[in-house]
């Protein structure tokens, strides 16, 4: 029997008395990429933290690659949101990527990383089209380039799942297109899970999207034509509009309370 890649069963979570997620259940098969969408405060980030084992559910079980999230961490590549790291920190591109190889049980005392790790870092940078940029200072890169470096860092552990938290939040449209090309090609090698506010990007990742608003519900893609027209009219990106999204398709089970 094929093991589900992600199996979330009746998961609830509350910060203190505030319930953020309520009986969330879904499962994902190997190689199935998808976007995590939903309004702000709907619980997307919380779900992400639960999948990464940074938070523990107050109810229910989560299994990632057949293991607990904590044990599966090594096989999940994580690309954090823009504000979570220090963009002015004095490191080079290679320094950042190599930090992806950091492990609890392995020491890499100053000054050198092993040859194998340095080669793997070069390979990761090739995967995100940044070959030859190893020596550039990270703080002088553009927003889009930084995102790719962070993707390369996440690829250092050769993960089976790549989790990205709003990777396009801080980049312009042209850069966004490049970033999405990179992610599209990575989808062939691993499961890509992307949290996004940008409805225009949803159809590019997988064949369905998971909408999280206290509960979770799958939306089959492509989204209805009028919806897409909405998104592309004027070539502008639009923020996720709950009303628009739920005006089409079957959302009987998608409770937004």
């Amino acid at each position: 029997m094929m093991e589900a890649l992600l199996a979330v069963e009746g998961v609830s979570f509350a910060y203190g008395r505030e319930r953020v997620l309520r009986e969330v259940s879904f499962s994902v098969n190997e190689q199935e990429s998808f976007c995590l969408i939903g309004p702000n405060g709907g619980g997307k980030s919380t779900l992400l933290k639960l999948l990464l084992g940074m938070l523990k559910p107050s109810d229910g079980t989560i299994s990632v690659l057949g293991k607990s999230p904590l044990k599966a961490r090594r096989e999940i590549g994580y690309v954090p949101q823009f504000m979570h790291y220090d963009p002015h920190f004095p490191v080079t591109v290679a320094d950042v990527v190599l930090l992806g190889a950091l492990e609890k049980s392995h020491f890499h005392p100053f000054p050198r990383w092993s040859r194998e790790l340095r080669e793997r870092a070069q390979h990761s940078l090739r995967q995100v089209d940044l070959a030859g940029c190893e020596r550039l200072p990270f703080r002088e890169l553009s927003g889009g380039q930084r995102q790719r470096v962070l993707i390369a860092r996440a690829l250092m552990t050769q993960p089976r799942i790549l989790l990205l938290d709003e990777p396009t939040a801080n980049v312009d449209l042209a850069v966004e297109t490049q970033l999405m090309d990179t992610l599209t090609s990575l989808q062939e090698q691993m499961t890509v899970i992307m949290v996004t506010h940008d409805m225009g990007l949803v159809p590019q990742i997988g064949s369905r999207a998971l909408c999280v608003n206290r509960r979770a519900h799958w939306h089959e893609l492509p989204l209805a034509p009028e919806m897409i027209q909405d998104i592309y009219s004027g070539g502008q990106r639009i923020e996720h509009n709950e009303a628009t999204l739920h005006s089409q398709g079957d959302h009987s089970a998608c409770s937004h309370d």
Binding site: R73, L99, S105
Partner: peptide, 10 residues
């Protein structure tokens, strides 16, 4: 540089 990522790497 990135405390959250370090935590994730153990």
């Amino acid at each position: 540089f990135d405390p959250e990522f370090s935590d994730l790497r153990g």
